[in-house]
Amino acid sequence: MGDSASLLAVMGKAVLSQPSAMHALQAAARRLFDFLTERDNLAFGLLIRIEAARLPSIRQRCADWISIMEEPLVVLIARCQADGVITRSSSAEVLSETLSDLIDGVAERLRNESILREDADLPALFRRRWEALLAYATA
């Protein structure tokens, strides 16, 4: 959110080094998860939500950021569908939104402190959400 260009660059590097579209999707999702759960980005998320509640221009900017962050997921999900790995007939956009919501749910819990970052097992939290997406997307 703070620097979407650097996020996309890192996600791109993670994707390029993967042997399959599914591995690339997992790597991109993990990088997005790591980005959204970084301490500074959690704080930024709180501040931007306050401003977005008051200012339509900030709301639009947030929507633009979300689109930018989800675009690599959409492309990779479409590739996984074309490869026959993701079999759910939902659109790549809907599946991307679902994955994004699962990921952002952890960031939201960290922001509202229903999970304390110091105590959180972030790899396990990501893994559970990834497994939930796979269960849904391959059913």
Rank of each mutant, 00 (worst) to 15 (best):
I50E: 15
V75C: 14
R49A: 11
A92M: 08
S6M: 12
A27Y: 07
L32N: 11
M11I: 13
S57N: 07
R54G: 08
M1S: 15
L116E: 09
D3M: 01
M22P: 00
Q81V: 01
A29W: 02
I103W: 04
R111E: 09
I58W: 08
D83E: 08
Y136K: 03
A135Q: 10
S89W: 00
A124P: 02
S6P: 03
A137K: 02
L55S: 14
A78Y: 02
A28H: 00
Q60G: 09
D119L: 14
L116R: 14
L7V: 10
A43N: 03
L25V: 04
R111I: 08
A9M: 06
D64P: 04
E108V: 14
F126A: 05
M1K: 06
V74D: 11
L125F: 05
F126T: 04
D119V: 07
G105V: 09
S100N: 12
A124H: 10
I48S: 13
I77S: 00
R79P: 01
L73W: 01
E113C: 07
I115L: 13
R31V: 12
E93R: 06
V75Q: 15
R111A: 14
I77N: 00
A5N: 14
L25G: 04
E118C: 07
Q81R: 03
S57K: 09
C62M: 15
H23W: 07
A135M: 09
E113L: 10
A63W: 06
A52R: 14
S67M: 11
L73H: 02
Q60E: 15
E70K: 15
R49K: 10
A43H: 13
A29K: 00
A124Q: 10
N41P: 03
A63Q: 11
F44S: 05
D40A: 10
R129I: 02
V15H: 01
A135E: 13
L134Y: 00
R117H: 08
G12Y: 13
V85Q: 05
A139T: 10
N41D: 13
K13V: 13
E71T: 10
D119W: 08
L76D: 04
A9D: 05
L73G: 06
R117A: 13
A139W: 10
N112C: 10
R111T: 05
G2H: 10
E93I: 05
D121Q: 05
L134G: 01
F35K: 02
G45L: 06
R129A: 13
E51C: 12
L46C: 06
M11V: 13
A43V: 15
R30V: 00
E131I: 05
M22S: 07
S67N: 13
A137G: 11
R59H: 09
S4M: 09
M22F: 06
L55T: 11
R111M: 14
L32T: 07
S4E: 11
L16A: 15
G105W: 03
R88Q: 08
R111G: 09
R30S: 06
L125C: 03
M22V: 12
F126Y: 05
S4R: 04
L76N: 03
L55E: 14
R109L: 01
G12W: 13
L47I: 07
S6Q: 13
